[in-house]
Amino acid sequence: MQIKYLSTLMALCLSFITGYSHGAPADKVAELCGSCHALERPDYEAQGREERFSRKAPPLYFAGNKYRQEWLAAFLQAPYPLYPSGYFPESKLQDTADGDIPNENDLVTHLQLSESDASEVTDYLMNLQPYTEMLSQDNYSEGKVSLRMGTLDFRKFKGCDACHQDSEDNGGFSGPILYDAWSRLQPHYISAFLKNPLQWDPNTIMPVPQMNEQAVHKLVDYLKAIGETE
């Protein structure tokens, strides 16, 4: 399925390359991305849980606190699927006798940008940093965990693989793939998100992991370890 999905995606992507090149970066990003991604903090207090149902894609208003710049620029030129069953619960799952499966028609083909547009959009997004203060309080520093212990911890003790893939052939579908997390996300973001995902998104559908700081850091080290052995 992965392969089929990727090749369809690549074929479709080619027809999507945009030649957009006018206007100020803010307008351009609003026009190209704003119909699906939040570029400002949603009014969570007023909208409550219904906010999640109106969402089409992950929020980008804190992109500069979340992504690695090089990853973002590369992704926008060559996007690949991060959510194996689509972005939840917007994705319309198909229920079959064997259980629910992703509806392949709903797995979006992401907009693809030219190199110059990607670099302009990336520069703009990397300046969206409302949570720099919060991140500066995170005290993760890179450490080592053995692959064996890390795998056991992630899968068996913490149950993260119910929703996340830590390799292409292991793990669930509703959360983003994590074998690429180390190349995609800033280490302090991973750490701070695991400590309290609600600070980033009160409507996250990931259960708050009830762990101490040391346990969080071990999981970040595990994502580093699998990211570096890829």
Partner: peptide, 26 residues
């Protein structure tokens, strides 16, 4: 019902039958 759709169907299934999209690998 809304909360169930948002948080629980990923594992328990859109019809609550336990066959959510994550279940095949759990």
């Amino acid at each position: 019902k809304r909360l169930y759709t948002m948080y629980c169907t990923q594992c328990h299934g859109v019809h609550g039958n336990g066959l959510g999209v994550n279940s095949s690998r759990m």
